[in-house]
Each structure stands twice: as structure tokens, then as C-alpha cells.
Nucleic acid binder design. Structure first.
Lengths: 197, 197
DNA sequence: CTTCGTGTGAGACAGATTGCCTCACATGCT
DNA sequence: AGCATGTGAGGCAATCTGTCTCACACGAAG
């Protein structure tokens, strides 16, 4: 991590610009994120935006990264407490993911990444990061469920993610519905049935 | 359907423009579709493009619609022949859908629609159309499977689509994988298990 | 507190793009 | 052949983009 430079002025304007970029992204999609719009929204000179991100793609990637904070902070107690019942842990993670997908900002970010990943390497990397984050957050619960004989022995976190994240994404981005706990629970139970031993 | 006017010159240039727009969309995403780019690609005057679509959104919607032809032509014999085994029919539709999602053009279109539906009504309508098409193509097979006792009585085509289309979309757009028959079959079987009586 | 380095804001600037317009032309209908 | 109309080319102002310069103020040293 090159964390050496820390001119207060730099970080201040940078934070303002990133925040403005993410807001613009949430409001109007990736196309709304331009040097000019970010400068105006952040109350910053246009040249300053160009100084920090010479090319448009870099600026947009910064907006996307900022709008995609790490998924789960730390579910230590949860994992320990509900060791006997894997379903509760799975539902916990999926509810968290569902709430995240429901969020306008995170939804806009994910949609933009999904779309942009078709044409750009940076976006593909970002997509990979997001996916890894999601799958890894599910992994301990899945392996625990497998260990307890609640899921088939050959179920991977990737496969389980496919049958849970997939339906959630479908509901959120294809159907356009909000993801309530009932929906998430139904998805989780369907996946548990699908992969039951 | 206002199908009255049919000046050969109009339809000729219109077709050229729509084709060019769809190609541009496939190659570079929705952002690549502009009046100027379409005019250049279609070998048409810039003014002509403006004449047909005064606003950019209309042009892009035309490109999206053209890139999203009806899903299934007519599966008459299939439905009659495999009446005894609902799984085959479901797999048939899902394979078709999988192949469609794998296609670069259709993938670009769907991604653009998913992304744009967050901000625009026209895109939302297009998304609704696509979704209805998909769900309706699955519906007969689902109801047949329910009738034959292979699926729970309360399974709707919408719910079944969620647990099949969702995972396919997940694999295609989040994982970035191609959708082979093996993947589609695995998804179909998982859904059948999830909704087994 | 003073001085120096540096990030900044404002603005100028050319080049490209956008949206709109006009006009000569050719295509298709009668 | 004559007419109507969609078209292509190009002009035009307005805007946007990317880059540059310059005065200024902030922050870090002495």
C-alpha cells in the first residue's frame, strides 16, 4: 500500500471528489460520472479532477470502488453461537447480502460493474473482487453446513452462491423487486433443499 | 401497430441504422451508441439519424429492442412429445435461454437493460418485456411439471424462473463464465430438487 | 512568525461533439 | 415526365473535453 503522501489538501479534495462521484453514480449511472460533473458536485476545480484521475475510466473505477465497501465486518459471535444450526448462519449472510443489494448505491454500483465488465478489464477486476467477497463470506457457513451433514458433501461455496446469489440478483435486477427477509429466507430454504444430502 | 408508411428509402436507411446501432451496442456498450457513431457505421448522414430518433434515448432503445428478438419461435412438438417427462422440456427451455445469454449481443443487451432500468422508464419497460418473455416461455413446462406431480403444487413460473434464470444470470454476468449444457442441466436439476414435492 | 513548496481554483484555449438548420439531389410514386 | 419526399453534405452555435498557465492559499518546515 503506497500510503506515504498525506497532504491534508490532497486527501480533502480527493474525498470530496470520490463522494461526489459515487453520488453521481447512484443518481444517474456510470455515464453521469464525468470530470466536469464531479468537479461541480464536489465544489472543486475541473483541473483538480483531471490532476487526480487523468482518464475517465480511472475516475469511474474510483467511484465504483468507493461505492462497494467490504461486505461483512466480522460475524465472530454469530458463527460460534449458531454452530449447531447452519441454516441460521446462512440466512444471516444472505439477509445481509439482500439488504446490500436493496441499497440504491450498492445496486447502482453492482449494475454498473456487471454491465461494464463486458468491455473493460478494470471492471472485470472489480467484478471479480465483489464476487470473491460474496462467495468468501458464504464459505464458512457452507463448509460448516456440509460438515454437519445439512448439505451434500460436494457442495462448494461457489455452487451454493450460484443458487442463492443468483436468485437474489434475479429478483433485484430483473424483476425489480425489493429483497425483504421473506424473499431471502425463501431463497435460502430453496437452496438448502436443492443441495440437501 | 402503425404500419402504414413504407417508403423503401425510409425502411432501408432505418434498417441500416438499427443494425449499426445494435452492432455498436454489442461492441462497446450502450455508451457507444450515439447519433454520430450510428451514422458513420450505417453509411448514413448524421441528420438522417436525428430525423428518425430525435433523442439519444430513443435511438438506444431501438438498438436494444432490435438486439432482443423473441426468445422461442415455437416448441409445439417438443411440448407434445415429452409430455411424460417434464424435466426434458424444462431443460430444453433453459438450454435455449443459456445459449441466448451466452451470445455476445444478447448478453450486451441484457446487461445494458439491467443497468439502465435503474434510471430510465423505457429501459424498465424493456426489462419487463424481457422478463415476461422468459417467464412465459417457462410457464407451460412448469405447469405441466406441477400437474404431473414433479413439482410442488404451489410453484409458480415466476418462482421457478427465480431459481433457474437467477443462477444462469449469476454465472454469466457475475462469474463471467460461459453457460454450457452441463451448467444449465445442473441448474435445472437443482431447481427441480428445490421445488420437489 | 516567516519562508518555501505544493496543491488548488479560475480561466484561457483548441479540438471534438452535439443538436439543429438549410439546400441540392436522387429516389420512388403517380 | 412530373412531383413529392427522404436523403447526404455541410454550415452553424453551443457545449464538452482535455490541457495549459497563473495567481493564490494552505500546510510544513525553519
Amino acid at each position: 500500500m503506497p500510503e506515504e503522501r498525506a497532504d491534508p489538501r490532497q486527501v480533502r479534495s480527493r474525498e470530496a471528489m470520490v463522494a461526489a462521484a459515487t453520488t453521481l453514480l447512484t443518481e444517474g449511472g456510470l455515464e453521469a460520472v464525468t470530470h466536469q460533473a464531479v468537479a461541480a458536485r464536489a465544489g472543486v476545480g475541473r483541473a483538480t479532477v483531471y490532476r487526480h484521475w487523468a482518464d475517465l475510466l480511472g475516475l469511474r473505477l474510483a467511484a465504483l470502488e468507493a461505492g462497494m465497501p467490504p461486505l461483512s465486518p466480522a460475524p465472530e459471535d454469530m458463527r460460534a453461537a449458531s454452530g449447531a444450526e447452519p441454516r441460521a448462519e446462512l440466512v444471516h449472510y444472505l439477509r445481509q447480502l439482500g439488504e446490500r443489494l436493496d441499497d440504491a448505491q450498492a445496486g447502482a454500483v453492482l449494475a454498473a460493474v456487471l454491465c461494464g465488465a463486458q468491455y473493460d478489464d478494470g471492471m472485470r477486476r472489480l467484478r471479480q473482487t465483489a464476487l470473491t467477497q460474496i462467495v468468501d463470506s458464504l464459505r464458512p457457513a457452507v463448509t460448516a453446513a456440509v460438515a454437519r451433514g445439512r448439505l451434500r458433501a460436494d457442495v462448494t461455496a461457489e455452487a451454493f452462491a450460484m443458487t442463492t446469489v443468483g436468485p437474489l440478483v434475479h429478483q433485484r435486477f430483473l424483476v425489480g423487486a425489493r429483497l425483504g427477509h421473506d424473499t431471502v429466507d425463501a431463497v435460502a430454504d430453496a437452496a438448502l433443499r436443492a443441495w440437501a444430502p
